[in-house]
Design a protein around this nucleic acid. Structure first.
Lengths: 234, 234
DNA sequence: GCAAATTAATGATTTATTCAAG
DNA sequence: CTTGAATAAATCATTAATTTGC
């Protein structure tokens, strides 16, 4: 296990070079990529499942690209073709039962077992199970917090009225406003956790304007606003 | 791979039960643990390395204990006997070279390869490589930030003195205080990025008190405080 | 009703924080 | 005090649902 490549007495720098040679040939102009290097043999049968357990074999969300760092504007956002896990009702049912039963962070053996069982109801990998518990735990915790701190105003009731060139009201999650040309009423949904706050006291409702930047304020006290404004597209 | 246990046409509740039966027999009084169930056969040779890749087979730091949740005072802190990775100079050298070369989050195949190479210089697992890059990246970033925004006050110098029943000073990362009963000086480590701020103007320093909740404030201006106080255990 | 647009939900990753071995 | 290990929080990205505007 693990010693797939017997490179004998390689020196340190050769080890490093060998690793770069494994990079996918992206032709990004990165000086360290060596796409011409021969593909390393993947003769190990067992190692593949190993890789897919947590680190997906479909490659990282952001291609490593190894020479472009955080600050680089190059940063490609590529996700390999494979789509994400789409759980079936049965799978969710079992997972929720396990969760209600008290399971939070299953260990590797448990994950393995769960995966094997859930595999009967649809395609699934170990990492999906792992992530499901992580996310479910975190989101249940969020929900719980939300319940402790009730919303500042009751939902679906009038929150506030913003005085603008175009009449706008924020009611629950829905923004009521009128189209400027003909006065026809329009409704816009708003992100559930956020109220609206106009940066300047106007609202441009013209078609040619792609985005209007608005300040948002949290409906729930525990939600902290981002540093910059959020843009809503019309 | 993955289908180690052929349970045929199990029903959902049987799947769930089967999973509990895999729990280690902790005898914590958890009603759902079923220590009497027969150990499942581990006839798979390859699955073991799979488990150890990220999720260590030695078990999570906190035993899952499946029925004790966050709020439970039971929370055992057990780390399985195996000691942690102790990297050799050669290993660190190679890893640092790779890091300087631009590698940040190696994918599974890279990890596999690195592990194989570093294995020549000492015992090492894939997860060690994974964690090393995670930690090194995070700590380099910290160092970098620290350099951009010099601390509000120079490190290792007195930051502030909080007037409390018990004399307390915050000096660098360390809190100096005196034990209430005998006045014996105590030092408490503090999270590196946070100063201390007493919620109420007192500090209970008795051994029988398990936790003292304190408000923290950021030492660096760019760090945003959480919504609630953070508890430091004595 | 339906296609396009938008939102909410949630799967997948990354980053921050904490703990504790050595 | 350093740093390996682990967990929690934050964030990103994709898909299912819902709404919109004919």
């Amino acid at each position: 296990m693990m010693q797939l490549y017997n490179m004998g007495s390689m020196k340190v720098h050769e080890v490093a070079r060998g690793l770069w040679e494994q990079e996918p040939s992206l032709t990004l102009g990165c000086k360290r990529l060596r796409p011409l290097a021969p593909k390393l043999p993947t003769d190990s049968v067992t190692a593949l499942d190993l890789k897919s357990f947590i680190r997906p074999q479909s490659g990282p969300r952001k291609l490593p690209s190894t020479t472009t760092n955080k600050d680089s504007p190059l940063q490609l956002q590529v996700r390999a073709g494979g789509s994400r896990w789409n759980p079936t009702q049965e799978q969710i049912g079992i997972l929720e039962m396990l969760y209600r039963g008290g399971m939070r962070t299953p260990n590797a053996q448990q994950i393995e077992h769960i995966t094997a069982q859930l595999g009967k109801y649809g395609k699934i990998e170990g990492k999906n199970v792992f992530y499901w518990f992580q996310n479910h735990k975190a989101r249940e915790r969020q929900k719980h917090k939300r319940n402790l701190h009730p919303t500042t105003t009751p939902p679906n009731s009038l929150i506030t009225t913003i005085t603008l060139d175009t009449p706008v009201q924020v009611q629950g999650k829905v923004i009521f406003m009128e189209r400027q040309e003909d006065g026809k009423p329009l409704r816009k949904k708003c992100c559930s956790n956020w109220g609206l706050f106009a940066k300047e006291s106007r609202w441009l409702c013209q078609e040619e304007e792609q985005h209007t930047t608005l300040e948002l304020f949290p409906l729930h006290p525990e939600i902290k606003p981002r540093s910059e404004g959020v843009s809503l597209s019309h």
